[in-house]
């Protein structure tokens, strides 16, 4: 079980670094969505299912939708 958690933490770290370096902001939003997904699983592993549910609802749907509206209002590619 500790190996699974280690792999998830590694993937989460690399996805966060990728979200930092992507020039296409839509790809950065998708990478942030992946970070939120893995954070939700980690809360689940820590025996906190309600926190995992809140993280899933906020991170997967709300933050993604708000960022997409923001990208739509401004511009998609970072200069």
């Amino acid at each position: 079980m500790i190996l699974v958690v280690s792999l998830l933490v590694l993937v989460m770290l690399l996805a966060a670094i990728a979200a930092f370096f992507f020039k296409d902001l839509m790809s950065a939003v998708i990478a942030a969505c992946m970070v939120s997904l893995i954070a939700s699983i980690l809360f689940y592993f820590l025996q906190a299912p309600d926190v995992a549910m809140a993280e899933a609802s906020i991170g997967a749907a709300l933050v993604t939708a708000v960022f997409i509206v923001a990208i739509r209002r401004t511009e998609r590619y970072e200069k």
């Binding site: 839509m26 939003v29 998708i30 969505c33 997904l37 939700s40 689940y44 299912p49 995992a52 549910m53 899933a56 609802s57 997967a60 749907a61 993604t64 939708a65 997409i68 990208i71 739509r72």
Partner: peptide, 22 residues
């Protein structure tokens, strides 16, 4: 714990629909 899986699958679908619409 099954509720977490249910809520997550529904909301991830909503997020993906938003991304696809964009």
């Amino acid at each position: 714990y099954l509720d977490v899986a249910l809520v997550y699958s529904l909301l991830a679908f909503l997020g993906l629909v938003a991304i696809a619409r964009f």
